[in-house]
């Protein structure tokens, strides 16, 4: 009786153990399969772009890439995007960093309300604004110039950056700031000398994100800039696209890859930081 019970129990244990092993193996297999499938689907058009850009039938060629740089204004588009992106980053940081600091540290009754208002502003869809903004841009004499984009893009990037930076700032212990104030700095001085440097990695993440948003924006770029050589890469390549000419297709295709890869790599570097910032934001609110 006792022995039988023990044997049954042992068999049950073995069954459970096999089940657990099987589950573990299945889980690992699912994770790897999921990772491979996800990566392939995400990269599919770019992989195809690379293949078609560098391969002509079966022999490798750089003809399409040379065509892209020599016979299309691709380089000019990229330069325009770099200028717009750089300036938008500067404007965004100048506006968002102090605002985020005010929201995260200087506790005011209306602080939360302002934060929510800024969040809501970031949800206002651009199609509701582009017609009026094109009037504004025209009135300011910025029509058909990249300056219009430098003026308008921060409406997209500032609210997001304020939220991310406020998250990073909340993670900085108040102690080090108070230490700096005890050591003889004013509140402003403490911010500039102690707080700002300690969130530099977070600022770098915001720089990358802001640049990515600025480089990818389509609606305003399409509406405000219409001369070929002044377009950023996001609208320029699409506008240059001739239907049906496989030669141009392949060149444009390689151009898309050249823009996509650096942006994805830069954002990939900061992925953990974005996740951390979002996580801290969702916890403290």
């Amino acid at each position: 009786m006792n022995g039988l019970a023990a044997r049954t129990a042992a068999r049950e244990m073995d069954r459970q153990r096999r089940l657990a092993t099987l589950q573990h193996v299945l889980l690992r297999a699912t994770v790897y399969a999921g990772a491979v499938i996800t990566a392939l689907i995400c990269a599919a058009p770019f992989l195809w772009g690379l293949v078609s850009a560098f391969a002509d039938g079966s022999s490798p060629t750089t003809e399409h890439v040379r065509f892209l740089f020599h016979s299309t204004p691709f380089a000019t588009f990229v330069l325009n995007t770099l200028i717009v992106g750089g300036l938008v980053v500067a404007v965004t940081l100048a506006l968002a960093l102090p605002a985020a600091y005010a929201l995260s540290r200087l506790n005011r009754a209306w602080g939360t309300r302002v934060a929510v208002a800024i969040l809501i502003v970031s949800l206002v869809p651009s199609p509701l604004l582009f017609l009026s903004l094109s009037r504004v841009v025209a009135t300011l004499g910025m029509a058909d110039s990249i300056w219009s984009l430098v003026l308008v893009y921060p409406t997209v990037t500032v609210p997001v950056s304020v939220w991310l930076l406020a998250g990073f700032l909340r993670a900085v212990p108040v102690d080090i700031e108070e230490q700096a104030m005890v050591d003889g700095h004013s509140r402003l001085g403490a911010f500039v000398r102690v707080v700002a440097p300690s969130i530099l990695p977070g600022v770098a993440a915001v720089v990358v994100l802001t640049f990515t948003l600025a480089a990818g924006e389509f609606t305003y770029a399409l509406t405000f800039v219409w001369s070929g050589a002044r377009m950023p890469v996001s609208t320029g390549l699409a506008a240059r696209l001739g239907d049906g000419d496989p030669m141009l297709w392949r060149s444009v295709q390689s151009g898309a890859v050249f823009v996509a890869l650096p942006l994805a790599l830069a954002c990939g570097l900061f992925l953990d930081r974005f996740v951390a910032a979002l996580a801290s934001g969702s916890q403290t609110d």
């Binding site: 990269a43 770019f46 990515t212 389509f218 996001s234 898309a256 954002c267 992925l271």
Partner: peptide, 12 residues
């Protein structure tokens, strides 16, 4: 690689 679709300019 997973970030590619989002970081690439939508038009591209």
């Amino acid at each position: 690689l997973v970030l590619l679709p989002w970081t690439t300019p939508v038009a591209l």
